[in-house]
Design a protein around this nucleic acid. Structure first.
Lengths: 365, 365
DNA sequence: CGGCGTCTTCGAATCGATTCGGCCTAGAAT
DNA sequence: ATTCTAGGCCGAATCGATTCGAAGACGCCG
């Protein structure tokens, strides 16, 4: 045996490699063709165990970390990533338990895909090299509470042939939509309050527009409103209490509910006997406001929420319209799976159920 | 003018296309080379406005939705995606305000990259085609509170040459780490309590292990603990109160804090005068437990938290060790940016500040 | 001992875009 | 009028892996 002085590298150290080894390098090192090495890694084709082992050994020796996902996704035409488009900044979305439950449901729904979730925000400008909704390596996207502004992005998605599913957002473009019966549910809740004898009812609503204008609801704001969910729930309440005054909150949070609640309850003379809040967090805030004023809930004031989340720390069992948030997310995820399988999932409208807790009671005489 | 029966498609409709048009198709349609079309889209090279316009027109006509991000990322070697590795399931992570603030900070930190955030969970098995931490098209990853189990994943990252940053998790592998002074901060808080005259102090801690074992802290559990943060904060408290009993919560939530608080405060005889909770949510739960027992906070019981978040709905200004969560996230994001720029960012250890609210007071005589 | 079937392995084309060096042409300078 | 300069555009190689049809080897059966 002769020495081999020109041998580039001994073996264990990937010293010679300027850059990372590729599948081809591994194949060469293992003495097989690139195709065989590929088969070995993907586990698909028929490869003898011996060969497979040889390939893995070579990979280990070269410090090869597996096939490059970029190349793989180019060739396969799939990236294994599902985009989630939020209309707010990440922080805002994550503060809303309903959105979180939906996100969780989505992850559950797309689990069979083994796909990752890419967070995208729908904030105009696709910067220089930014990964926006228009240029993200996603196999499909879930639009959450999408605004009208999304229209062009939706268009881009269609051009790129990326299937989409919308949650709580009418895109009306052949995109399957997952929604709930906002209007009917609220009406049912309102009817329940009427049955309890309430007639002086006030509303605390979610924002109407992107500017999150706060304060008493004005006809102008109501007309200019773009938030579909807010409008639908409002309409449902108005079907029962056409003249109920409404206070608009700036977001769905206890803090905002507290503020709105203070505004509504400030004047003892004009005090309602029941408040319909458009979310549980708002309702929780309203209850705190009532406590501040020494108003007993539900004896003196009934409070109705919406969502059916467990408000961490609230000492009441909120009467609320429980919507299946996680199920919505799961349905969206499953719709994505079907879309990617070439099927055409239908839109789904979930039903909310009235959960009677201890925050509503017969109207005080 | 004659009718054109055999004409495949007029122009606007991409009817003839079996599959989606590619850049090459657009280039051909515009009468330029593929390279020129590419330059036009990327906006980089010198292309006359006229040519550029011709390319865009052709694209519009063909219904071309822009360069395929998969191919682009293969060629460019970057995907524009940053992975965030959470050790829990998505839902769990999103329920923790601290994590959310960090996520938000991360998005802020990596903003100059224009990159998207890919949510990854570190749950063992990289399923068949799953996009796991081992095979995701990410340019870099942020490890959040990573457990020892992550070791092999970290190894895979190194092999694949993917830079990583760790938040609150000792990886000790040349990975820059963003952390806070858990131990010293807790010690400072404990010292403050001692100065107030407290000596009967109990602890309510975060989980020690992945199983989230609840209950009174046993020496075995303490020894087997793998959660660095929990252990550090515990050590800090023990420096001042070596014999303080500890109750372990199953997670950082008000609910868990409430339960732990009940356990600690159940026996009137063995009641402490102060409780050091390892998170604000736990502290909030403890306060609720105190209220249940009719124990006045802070007159009869002082409660110290950790994190400095605003607990939505809590009627107290919590005395707490405020950590800069968002700043931590931002620092991690910035570290990622630097890593991708080829620099070597250093580890950063943030300092928490003692915020004195209205939940601590001198120890009752 | 030869034909045939099966299990492996290999070649070569392909996915879609980017990029670098070179070539061409028009305008400017002398 | 000729040469120089520079802006524009094109060709061809490349990124790294996957995939399908075909070729090779081996064992079995007649």
């Amino acid at each position: 045996m002769q020495p081999e002085p020109p041998a580039p590298a001994p073996a264990p150290a990937p010293a010679s490699a300027q850059s990372r080894p590729t599948l081809a390098d591994v194949a060469a090192h293992a003495g097989v063709s690139a195709s065989t090495a590929s088969l070995a890694f993907s586990g698909a084709g028929p490869v003898s165990d011996a060969t497979k082992q040889r390939v893995f050994d070579a990979a280990a020796e070269l410090g090869y970390g597996g096939p490059d996902p970029r190349a793989r996704s180019l060739r396969r035409g799939r990236s294994g990533i599902v985009g989630v488009v939020l209309e707010e900044r990440v922080r805002a979305a994550f503060l809303d338990p309903v959105k979180i439950q939906m996100l969780d449901g989505i992850t559950e729904g797309i689990a069979p895909l083994g796909a990752g979730l890419l967070l995208l925000t729908d904030t105009g400008e696709p910067g220089d090299n930014a990964v926006s909704i228009e240029s993200a390596p996603v196999d499909a996207v879930v639009l959450i509470g999408c605004s009208p502004r999304l229209a062009e992005s939706v268009d881009a998605l269609r051009r790129r042939g990326i299937p989409a599913v919308a949650i709580e957002g009418a895109t009306g473009d052949g995109i399957p939509e997952i929604s709930i019966d906002n209007r009917q549910a609220t009406r049912r809740g309102a009817e329940y309050l009427r049955e309890l004898g309430h007639s002086r009812v006030a509303l605390v609503t979610l924002p109407f527009d992107a500017a999150r204008t706060r304060g008493a609801l004005t006809p102008e704001l109501e007309r200019a409103g773009t938030a579909a969910t807010t409008l639908e729930r409002l309409a449902g309440a108005r079907e029962v209490f056409p003249d109920a005054p409404a206070q608009v909150a700036g977001a769905s949070s206890i803090e905002e509910g507290l503020e709105a609640g203070r505004a509504v309850l400030a004047d003892p003379a004009a005090r309602p006997t029941a408040i319909i809040a458009q979310s549980d967090l708002l309702a929780a805030g309203v209850i705190l406001a009532a406590e501040e004023y020494g108003i007993a809930v539900p004896a003196e004031l009934s409070v109705l929420g919406f969502d059916g989340i467990r408000v961490d720390g609230l000492q009441h069992d909120l009467t609320t319209l429980a919507q299946p948030s996680a199920a919505k997310g799961r349905a969206a995820g499953e719709a994505v799976v079907r879309l990617l399988a070439g099927e055409v999932p239908e839109s789904v409208c979930f039903t909310s159920t009235l959960h009677v807790g201890d925050t509503t009671a017969a109207a005080p005489r």
